[in-house]
Amino acid sequence: MSRVIGIIFSSAGYDRAAQGVTGAGRRLADALGLPLQMVVVGGGGGDLAGSLAAVADAVTVLTVTGVADYQPEQTLAALTDLCRGEGAQAVLLGNDTWSQELAPRLAHRLGGSAAGDGVELVIADGRLRVSRSVYGGKAMATIELLRDPAVVWIRARAFDPATAREVPAPIESLEAAPTGEPATFIIERKSEVTGEARLEDAQVIVSGGRGLGGPEPFTDLQDLAGLLGGQTAASRAACDSGWCPPSWQVGQTGRKVAPGLYLAVAIRGASQHLAGISEAKTIAAINNDPDALIFKHCRFGIVEDYRKVLPLLRERLAAMRKE
């Protein structure tokens, strides 16, 4: 009856994060010799459930009567009942807002232990060990969870997707009754995503920092990102200065991104910021300070005032695109 449960919030679809959670879940389930049950929260994800059924042993679409997609207290209660009923040995979630909000509370209700931001999961002596970056990315720690079940939210994009099974899993729908009176209620929601995709899914990110000196240059960064088919982001300093929305913030305290190319413009490279880009494949920088810490993490870069570089770079990239 015991199993590994992966939880996906349906609004995100079967994106890179959902693939990572499922892939990590598959490997953990195999290591433990247990089935993998994927749970879609909020229903509505027709092809999300279908995609999960191709790689999991069971799929449950979980809704709460009267809740469109997510309400913290209601969703938490429904997930607790489900995990308890299925005898969850381990529960995996992504590192989106809702997963991070619920994971510790879910662990507590199940009498288990939680750890977050995991980039590697191993079983040692029957206990789950989670590796994660700490001290703003300056060190890596391995944490052993001492209580069952283990509830872990992972840096989903750091994990490979699962491969398809021969026979797709059955998809089951479960409608939970709401519990008591909701004590919190999301009444309004606004999306400020910079383009089609979420920052976490972007292949190219052009990011600006304190050195930009004001909100105006972000328009140039957006142009540049547009030329490269990418998205725009920012450092904490730029967001705190109100030059761009907080949802653009990349770093330990913002989004953790994993693009193929991260172009840092006028970003010094505080460890706080670097912690958010450790999964980027290639980092490049434009900075007028040759000693800027960002260069220690770059494959290539240019030491120059961004004001001089950006117009020329945009012109050159636009020409190359036409070629």
């Binding site: 807002t97 999301i186 309004e188 929601r189 606004k190 400020e192 979420r198 949802s247 989004r255």
Partner: peptide, 8 residues
């Protein structure tokens, strides 16, 4: 939130 903000 990941995508923007919510009022609760």
């Amino acid at each position: 939130t990941d995508q923007g903000w919510e009022n609760v």
